[in-house]
Structure formats: C-alpha cells, structure tokens
C-alpha cells in the first residue's frame, strides 16, 4: 500500500472525527471537572468536590425525576415492545390485506417527527376539548345504561376534566411514546421475523407445537438477538426522554413534578437555574444508568445463537 492509500480511510473519517472531537470529546473531558464545581456565570467558579453528587442523592426532586424516568422506561419496554412485536407478527403473515399500507401507517409518526407528534399529543390530551377525553366520555356514555358497570362510571364532566398533562403526565407520555415508537420498533421486529426460515415454524408445526409454543420455542429464540438490541435501544432512548415531555407538558414537567424526567431536571438546573455543576453531575449519573443498561445487554447477548 502506498502512503496515500493508507491515509485514505482516515481522510474519509475526518469530518466525523473532527466534529466528534469538538462537540463531544472535548466537552466530555471538560465536564469531568465541571461536575465538581459551583459556577457563578460562565467565567467564575469554585471547587466543591463531590458535593454536587451528594446533593443529588439528598434531593427529593432528583429522586422524583429518577422514578419518573424509570416508570417511563419500564412502560416503554413492557408495553411498547410487545405491541411492536405483535404488530410485526400480524404483518408478517402471508395473507394480510394492505400490508404495505399498515406498515406505512404504523411507521408514519416517525416521518412527521417528534415535535409534531408531541404538539399533537398535547392537543389530544387536553382537558375538556381534547380528543382523548372526548372519546372516553363518548365511550362512557355508550355503556352508562348498563347495570353495575354503569353505576361505577364517573360523570361526563369528570371524564372531560381528566388532567392528563397536569397530573397524569407519565401515562400520557407512555401512551404518546407508544404511538411514536411502536411502528419504528415494529420495523426491526418485522425484519427479524422475515429472516426466520419458514421451515422452522413448519417443522415445529409437524412436531405438534401449537401457535403459542411455536412462538416461544421457535420464533422468539430466533429473533432474540434483534429483540435484545431493540430493548437496549428502547431503554437508552427512554432514559434520555426529554423533548416529548418538554413540549407536551405544562412547564415541561406537569404539576408537582408529575412529568419531571432526569434530562428535564438536568436541563432546568443547567439552563434555567444556571447551576452547570449540578447539571453536569446529573448528566454523569444518567451516563452511569445508560452504562448499566448497555452492560446488561452485552451479558444477555453472550448466549446468542446463530441461525
């Protein structure tokens, strides 16, 4: 190889490497001392050691943010991914009419983008005139006449007044994320399912396995590597949830911190209160959480099988 061809790969990588250096690596290194400082405006700071970290552990709002973030993450993984997988399983069948249209439909929130979806969700989850409460109220009216159940139902005005964005922020966020990301994850699952040889399922069928056993004994293990990857992506994405909450919820976090997430709390501290040291410390705690998720995935993936 000549000198020129040796340099070529690095030249191609250069644009990425330069941007990565300037906007990721340098700030990352700077953030290490920053987490141990208390800043006074952009120029002045004093060293406070680990105080910012210990403050986080004693800060009830930090714990609320952590709890909300974990609730959101759990909800995403436990509700969204099974829904995505179920959609993929249905669309993977041979005889689904309008398969392409459904695929596009489920994927479409990705096409319009997060901000649009968040704004739309905000409108839909509003009290009184929001679509969600209107549908709930309409549904309740339909079954109000029924015995027993009818008696339990709250009144129409109560239903219309359900404060999703204000106090039920977490369910609202989880439902919106479901809408936003289920179709996206479905595409991963669909691709994985299409790589499972159909003879495997046929062999299991002949061996006497019913649909449920076939799913758990054949299909699921075959798509396990992809499934683990999708779970990891979902967990990492969920831990970083911010824009959705910030746009949808009043003050970006609902009433009484009902929708406060870790990244929202980081943002508030760093850019509204101006305590860059505390924001950085929270950032490092989030990073620790992400690392745990990533390591877990690596451990799980070790038992992966090749088809």
């Amino acid at each position: 190889m000549t000198k020129d061809t040796k340099a070529a790969p690095y030249l191609f990588l250069a644009p990425f490497l330069i941007l990565f250096l300037v906007f990721t690596l340098v700030p990352l290194f700077q953030s290490v001392p920053l987490a141990t400082q208390h800043t006074f405006g952009p120029d002045a700071s004093i060293d406070v050691g680990m105080e910012k970290f210990s403050r986080a552990f004693g800060d009830p709002r930090f714990w609320t943010a952590l709890r909300n973030t974990l609730v959101f993450t759990t909800g995403s993984v436990l509700i969204q991914l099974p829904v995505a997988l179920a959609l993929a399983l249905v669309l993977n069948r041979k005889h689904v009419l309008g398969r392409g249209i459904f695929r596009l439909l489920f994927f479409s929130p990705q096409l319009v983008g997060l901000v649009f979806v968040a704004v739309l969700a905000m409108v839909m989850f509003q009290k009184q005139k929001g679509l969600v409460n209107s549908i709930l109220a309409g549904g309740a009216d339909l079954i109000r006449g029924l015995p027993i159940i009818g008696g339990w139902l709250p009144s129409k005005s109560d239903i219309l007044g359900i404060p999703w964005l204000e106090t039920l922020a977490m369910p609202a966020l989880i439902i919106t994320a479901l809408w936003m990301y289920a179709g996206f994850n479905m595409i991963y699952f669909l691709a994985a399912l299409q790589n499972v040889p159909k003879e495997l399922e046929e062999a299991a069928m002949i061996d006497g396995a019913g649909p449920i056993r076939r799913f758990f004994a054949v299909t699921l293990p075959s798509i396990k590597p992809v499934a683990i990857f999708v779970v990891l992506l979902s967990v990492i994405g969920s831990i970083q949830v911010f824009e959705l909450a910030y746009i949808m919820l009043p003050e970006g976090m609902g009433l009484q911190d009902s929708g406060l997430t870790l990244v929202t709390y980081l943002f508030k501290n760093g850019f509204e209160i101006g305590d860059l040291g505390y924001a950085t410390a929270i950032g490092w705690l989030i990073a620790a959480l992400l690392s745990i998720a990533a390591i877990t995935q690596r451990v799980l993936n070790r038992s992966e099988v090749r088809l």
Partner: peptide
C-alpha cells in the same frame, strides 16, 4: 415426519 432441504433444526 418431514425432513427439509435446509434441515430446519431448531437453532437454539
């Protein structure tokens, strides 16, 4: 019982 061309053994 059937034997397939690609064997269709359960990989895991």
């Amino acid at each position: 019982a059937m034997v397939f061309q690609n064997y269709a053994l359960y990989p895991h």
